[in-house]
Amino acid sequence: MGKTIICHCEDISIEELFSAVEQGYKDIESIKRYTGIATGTCQGKCCLIQTLRALASGDDRSSPKTASESAASTPLKGIAVKMPTIRQPVIPARIDRIIKAGEKAVKKATGKA
């Protein structure tokens, strides 16, 4: 207990995210690949926006920092905050259903030929 989990599917804490940034992973695609954020069951529906917010908290906004205040000391400035590539299927689909769909398509194609 006592952790701030940023990605609950892959169990990644906010510290792990910032340590990845410190190690030099400075864009969302490489952060995603290195930490595993947004690659779990929810495919980023719960964690991606949190990650982008945390990365952007180094922005120069003349306002009190709220979430991830501890992170404000991390050199986050200049990270490009953009959406990573989101691939199909949008919602986790059971692999056997995809296989089924494929089999059907093959049957249809060979049946026609």
């Binding site: 207990m1 952790k3 989990i5 609950h8 599917c9 892959e10 169990d11 779990g40 069951t41 929810c42 529906k45 719960c46 919602i91 986790p92």
Partner: peptide, 20 residues
């Protein structure tokens, strides 16, 4: 329970999206 730290997980999003 979560994969790495074995944290308890309960009902969360209500839409079958979050995986908890």
């Amino acid at each position: 329970y979560s994969v790495k730290y074995h944290r308890p997980r309960g009902i969360h999003c209500g839409r079958g999206r979050c995986g908890m």
